[in-house]
Simulated assay, not measured.
Amino acid sequence: MQDNAITLEAPNEEAMRNIGERLAGIVRGGDVLLLSGPLGAGKTTLAQGFGAGLGIGEPIVSPTFTIARELDGVFPGGGHAHMIHVDAYRLGGSDYAPGQDGIDRLLDELESLGLDEELEDPGENTVVLMEWGEQMAAALAPERLEIHIDRPAQLVQNTDEPTSEGTRIVTLVPVGSDWAQRAATLAGK
């Protein structure tokens, strides 16, 4: 992780939603946030808190099968907020275009969905929250907040399945000086 990374703990779903709400308090139009972590880590739970922090009344659900959802809310300062919630999990598969590199495949798929311009240059009222977007981070957003969520390693008794219980470790990696200053406010720095 980078030197300016900020680590937060979320011992339960309420705390994860609270981190999302706090993130919504520091965003502004044009921001890109990339969420990563294993299945069940809490990405959608954080997104729910983020949506609540923007005053979005619609339910925030994982956009895995729709790829992207567009929702409207209000920035903390009162201006209109347009949130694009993207799930890039199924984008850029290896069978998409043989011989083409992964970033080019992802960009082609985003273009076919009409999302490439929104992600490369979000409008002044648009915030992009992308789950599973770490593989295209550098190609899309030179200024961004990367949010990595790790879940507990302990296993449920008598199974090999990871537990949904336990503290999550949320690491914020600001990329760009503006993000570094804003993200530091979440850690009280």
Rank of each mutant, 00 (worst) to 15 (best):
R168Y: 02
P152M: 03
A97S: 06
E143N: 15
A139E: 06
A88E: 09
T163S: 15
V173R: 08
L140F: 01
Q157R: 09
E120V: 13
E165H: 07
M130K: 04
E111P: 08
D108I: 04
L129T: 03
A139V: 07
H80G: 00
W132T: 00
L140N: 00
M130N: 07
D121S: 15
A81T: 05
R151E: 08
A137S: 15
L107M: 13
L91H: 10
P162E: 05
H85C: 01
L172G: 06
E117A: 09
G176D: 01
Q135G: 07
A81Y: 02
L110Y: 12
E109H: 10
T159L: 11
A153P: 03
S112F: 05
E124L: 15
G99R: 07
D150L: 06
R90N: 02
R144C: 10
I169D: 04
A137W: 00
S94W: 00
V86W: 15
E146R: 08
P152C: 04
D160M: 04
L91I: 11
E124I: 14
S112N: 03
G166E: 12
L129M: 11
I169L: 10
M136T: 02
G79N: 05
W132S: 01
W132F: 09
E111V: 04
I169G: 02
V173Y: 07
D160S: 11
L113C: 13
T159V: 11
V173K: 05
D104F: 14
L140W: 00
G93P: 01
M130L: 13
E143C: 06
G78T: 03
I169R: 14
L119R: 07
A81V: 12
P98R: 02
S94D: 11
H148D: 14
P174A: 04
L106G: 13
G92H: 04
R105G: 05
G99E: 12
M83P: 03
I169A: 07
A81D: 08
P174M: 09
G133P: 14
P142D: 15
N158S: 11
V127S: 13
G166Y: 14
V74A: 04
R105S: 12
G166H: 12
Q135A: 13
L172K: 00
P122Y: 10
G166W: 15
L119P: 06
P174F: 12
G133A: 14
A97I: 08
N125K: 09
L113M: 14
G114P: 06
E111K: 11
